[in-house]
Amino acid sequence: MTHSATLQLHQVAIGRGDFILCDDVNLTLHAGDVCHLVGENGLGKTTLLNQIAGLLPTTHGTITKSPLVYVSHQLGISPVLTVAQNLRFLFSLYDVQADNDTIDTALDMVGLYGLGDTSSVQLSAGQKRRIGLARLFIMTPTHAPLWLLDEPLTALDVAMVAKLEKRMGEFANMGGAVLATSHQAMQGANRVLDLAEFAL
């Protein structure tokens, strides 16, 4: 049985404008794939994720992708909103109707239970990251079959890392695909994309 690809990169150049870091990058991810994106700092891992997400233009090559969730360092947490308001906003981007129970469940999964009414400005960097990750414990491939995760395991304790890796596996088993960068080994990854192979 052939699945249509969740993500396809065909001879993609990674870079900004004329400044190309890597060229002719090819990758096909199908339902069930968890791919570890590796490469030294400066090779363009985050740039590639931004290009796949449509936040940066692709100068040459083609990117074909399913609807996606992008969890990065910067995206989407407003300091003027409460934790619950931020999470509601992140869910609303995917037409997920998040009631209070859903919000509580998501926050509980990332160790922020009871902080829903807290102003996000009071949170540590690690806690803000967890708001961004909380939606992953609710969303399924029906909402968006592709997850792009930029260093999702950074600033997390061992138990939270294990919980998130388990969740990535569950999402893949449900028919999703994950492309994630991490400086540490990723349990459950069945694919690796090493940008060093494409560096100029």
Rank of each mutant, 00 (worst) to 15 (best):
S66F: 01
F91D: 01
T64A: 11
I20A: 09
T62A: 11
L195W: 08
Q97W: 08
A180I: 10
S124P: 05
L81C: 07
I52Y: 01
Y94V: 01
R167W: 04
G175T: 09
T28D: 07
V178T: 01
T59M: 10
E197M: 13
L156S: 09
V80A: 15
S119Q: 14
T59E: 12
T46V: 04
D194K: 08
Q127I: 02
G114I: 06
E40R: 15
H60Y: 13
I14Q: 06
F89G: 03
V178D: 01
T28M: 07
L156T: 10
M186F: 05
R167K: 12
T58I: 15
A155H: 15
G116W: 04
V178F: 02
T46E: 02
P152T: 06
Y94W: 06
T62W: 05
K166A: 15
D108C: 12
S124L: 05
M168T: 03
F19N: 11
A180V: 12
V178N: 01
T140V: 02
A159T: 15
D99W: 03
R129K: 15
A5R: 02
D99I: 01
N41D: 09
L75F: 12
V38I: 13
D150T: 10
L179K: 01
A185W: 02
D95W: 02
F91P: 01
V110A: 05
Q97F: 10
Q184E: 10
G54I: 02
S72I: 12
V121T: 06
M174R: 13
M174P: 06
K128Q: 13
A155M: 14
T58D: 11
A155L: 14
A106V: 03
L146I: 00
A31V: 05
T62M: 10
V25E: 03
S72N: 13
L37G: 09
G116S: 05
G114T: 04
L75N: 14
P67Y: 00
K166F: 09
L37Y: 10
L136C: 04
A5N: 03
P57C: 08
K65M: 00
E151R: 12
V121D: 12
A199Q: 15
L7Y: 00
S4V: 07
P79M: 11
V69Q: 06
M1D: 10
L123T: 13
G15K: 08
F19Q: 12
T154N: 14
A144S: 06
I77V: 15
R88L: 02
T118G: 00
Y70I: 01
F89N: 06
A185C: 05
T82Q: 04
L112G: 07
L149F: 05
L55T: 10
A53V: 01
T105K: 10
A125N: 11
L200M: 12
D104I: 00
M139C: 03
V158W: 08
Q187F: 09
A13D: 15
Q127P: 02
A13H: 14
A185F: 04
V110L: 08
A159H: 14
G39R: 08
F19W: 07
C35V: 02
L29W: 00
K128Y: 07
F19V: 08
I77F: 10
M109C: 11
Q8G: 06
T6W: 00
F91E: 00
Q187D: 13
G176R: 00
L90M: 15
I63M: 11
Q85I: 04
F19L: 11
L87K: 03
A106M: 05
Q85K: 11
L48H: 03
L153S: 07
L87S: 03
V158K: 12
I77N: 11
K128E: 10
